[in-house]
């Protein structure tokens, strides 16, 4: 494609059960655009983990997905509490999720590691008290 295609989603921080709607929508869209199941799986899982994180920790946020001829870029931005120690947060099994979230099967400390595992690059910009922006890229060419 010559023109980049962009998608924007507002992730509702109040509604935990609807978390995942943006990722499921992106999954359908990428399928219609003819991407391989592997690419679709990687994008939708990385985005879902990010969505869940924004709902659990940040009271929601914004998700922007851009598809161009070389890559799919996902930018997740929130105005939440920020991440004090990104190295610690990236460790599998480390989580600050509260018990009510754990009882739903989340909070295993796998969110950020999964996002890194499924993408080709991942950048985290975070300021404590201001928010977090995560940019992930998946190469398609």
């Amino acid at each position: 494609m010559s023109e980049a295609v962009r998608f924007h989603f507002d992730v509702d921080g109040e509604n935990f059960t609807s978390a995942g709607e943006a990722s499921v929508a992106i999954k359908k869209t990428l399928r219609q655009m003819g991407f391989s199941p592997d690419i679709i799986r990687r994008v939708s899982i990385a985005m879902y983990e990010g969505e869940i994180n924004m709902v659990i920790h940040a009271g929601g946020g914004k998700a922007d997905v851009t598809v161009d001829s070389e890559k799919i870029e996902i930018v997740l931005a929130d105005n939440g509490p920020g991440i004090a120690d990104i190295g610690l947060a990236m460790q599998e099994g480390y989580s600050t999720a509260p018990d009510n979230i754990r009882s739903l099967g989340f909070g295993a400390g796998m969110g950020l590691p999964n996002m890194k595992r499924y993408t080709d690059s991942m950048d985290i910009q975070s300021t404590v008290g201001k928010g977090t922006t995560i940019t992930m890229q998946i190469r398609i060419a």
């Binding site: 899982i45 879902y48 983990e49 295993a108 796998m110 999964n114 595992r117 499924y118």
Partner: peptide, 8 residues
């Protein structure tokens, strides 16, 4: 049963 684990 840990959804993120399953997801990965």
């Amino acid at each position: 049963d840990l959804l993120s684990w399953v997801m990965g």
